[in-house]
Design a protein around this nucleic acid. Structure first.
Length: 497
DNA sequence: ACTCCACAGGAAGCGAGGGAAA
DNA sequence: TTTCCCTCGCTTCCTGTGGAGT
């Protein structure tokens, strides 16, 4: 404990010092060279009456303290999880609902409440959150959990050690300190301290990769079972985990309880996909789905409520015209009642209004925001695509630009091969290109439908579902694809065949 | 009723690249 | 150093298939 204190504060002070030095340097430069021009660069922007009061509450990362229209689901979760506070194992829970229906927000809210209540009543209870879209293999889930619990155990041991040392100090002066404690001599306390320190030294963090999975499992198991507690493991986007690496993880987690001596584990799965349990082993399915909670999509009225709630905090009074919120709600309701989308729209509309130096957010800004969000998403997705996918997408664009709609896989592959030769990239097999096209389909960049043309075989009919000019521009900004100068020959070759 | 196209997409497995342990 | 282990992108080999043409 005592040796920790100087450490962080030391390094922190160094950081501050160095950054201050840096600032001073910068200021000097600016003052010398460009005083005039820089004056007022931000002043103009600042002088416009800002529309926002607190933009943070419109961001997806913000967890509200109140979730309108989700009382029922939250109460149900709480009634199930309250068992944890009595030291019993809560039933496993499965939560279903489309994106932006408040699943994650509600679950996080409940788990925060659970943890704070458990502290109040001094019942050991931990909630661990894992997003399975990021952590999508058994190894990684177990490793992440293991490390979190090791960290938690170390923190606990430090706490206990501090208590014990305090007890030891006071006992040295007056043995009556042992009256309320579990120890009756200094030696006993010393033994316990030594024991805890040995335990702490034994913990080893799990590396990102390298270990056999069963070893990770046993480290995780020991870390959880280190002392008495109830553990709730929240697996967000659990369907992604099952899709990618099967149900082994869930099987292992759900049968843990029968082997744990001190602690109890309960799983809370959150899924976008109502049918993902179809792929599960029946045993896993029944144990996981002990309790199911469904989050229905919000309707336009509910979305309006939510937006109203947040906008009261987010915007200055009277910054919105009357039709802004209903319009955001209506747009988002079309997108299967996605509240995240609705908030995004509202925030972007506000930003656009701010950029216009307008004092009011109006209907027009919302419509612009609708387009902007979609375009931004596409640009970002396309920009970060791997090179091979970019080449495939570019092939599709070339065909589309030359008036060939509903292209099939074979045609795309032919153009793709020529492009690869041109820019000296590896040529992948058609099998692989099929997969890349499916990925583009899932990202919503193209639309690929399997159709049968009878005598003329079965293939995918592929069409672009994003604006062609902008997408092409993004692709050409890639250094490798930028080399392609004359594209005509590629498409021309197609008509020659 | 049967054929047969042009693929879709599953299964297995390879090899490079991350890393750990002996 | 060698030997394991996990992950990822990819290939090879394969079986499956809707429906126009016959």
């Amino acid at each position: 404990m005592s040796n920790e204190e100087p450490g962080p504060s030391d390094s922190a002070s160094v950081d501050i010092d160095s950054s201050q030095d840096f600032d001073v340097d910068l200021d000097d430069v600016v003052l010398e060279d460009e005083e005039e021009e820089n004056q007022g660069l931000f002043d103009d922007l600042l002088s416009g009456e800002p529309i926002f009061e607190n933009k943070e509450v419109l961001r997806p990362s913000y967890t509200p303290h109140e979730l309108p229209h989700r009382k029922e689901q939250i109460n149900k979760m709480a009634t199930i999880l309250v068992a944890a506070l009595r030291g019993e194992t809560p039933s496993n829970i499965l939560i279903y609902g489309k994106t932006g229906t408040g699943k994650t927000a509600s679950a996080k809210f409940v788990s925060q409440e659970l943890e704070s209540t458990s502290q109040k009543y001094r019942v050991p209870c931990d909630v661990e959150y894992i997003n399975c879209e990021v952590t999508d293999t058994q190894y990684r889930v177990l490793a992440q959990l293991a490390n979190k619990f090791i960290e938690e155990n170390e923190r606990l041991i430090d706490e206990w050690l501090a208590d014990l040392r305090e007890l030891r100090e006071s006992a040295l002066e007056d043995t009556s300190a042992f009256d309320d404690a579990d120890f009756d001599s200094i030696d006993a306390v010393d033994d316990r301290i030594a024991e805890l320190e040995a335990d702490k030294a034994e913990f080893e963090t799990v590396p990102m990769t390298g270990w056999p999975t069963d070893r990770v499992y046993s480290v995780f198991f020991d870390a959880v079972d280190y002392h008495e507690r109830v553990v709730v493991i929240m697996l967000d986007e659990i369907d992604k985990l099952v899709e990618k690496s099967g149900d082994d993880t869930l099987y292992n987690l759900s049968r843990m309880n029968s082997e744990l001596a001190n602690s109890r584990v309960s799983i809370m799965g959150i899924s976008n996909d109502l049918k993902f349990t179809d792929f599960l082993d029946p045993r896993v399915k029944s144990s996981l789905g002990e309790e199911e909670i469904v989050f229905p999509p919000y309707d336009a009225n509910q979305l309006r409520d939510i937006l109203q709630h947040r906008s009261d905090v987010a915007f200055k009074a009277d910054a919105l015209t009357d039709d802004v919120i209903p319009l955001c709600a209506a747009f988002a309701a079309q997108e299967h009642g996605d509240a995240r989308r609705a908030l995004d729209l509202l925030r972007t509309a506000g930003e656009l209004a701010e950029r216009d130096q307008s004092e009011l957010v109006d209907e027009d800004h919302v419509r612009q925001a609708q387009d902007k969000i979609e375009l931004d998403r596409v640009v970002e997705v396309v920009r970060t695509l791997p090179t091979q996918s970019k080449i495939v997408l570019f092939s599709i664009i070339l065909l589309e630009k030359n008036g060939v709609h509903n292209v099939n896989t074979g045609e795309v592959y032919n153009i793709y091969k020529r492009l690869c030769e041109e820019i000296d990239a590896d040529v992948l097999t058609q099998r692989r290109v099929t997969d890349l096209i499916s990925e583009l389909d899932m990202l919503g960049i193209v639309n690929a439908v399997v159709v049968s043309k009878g005598r003329y075989g079965r293939t995918k009919e592929i069409s672009l579902s994003v604006p062609i000019e902008e997408t092409e521009a993004v692709l050409l900004s890639d250094s490798r694809l930028g080399d392609i100068e004359d594209v005509q020959p590629f498409v021309q070759a197609r008509f020659d065949n």
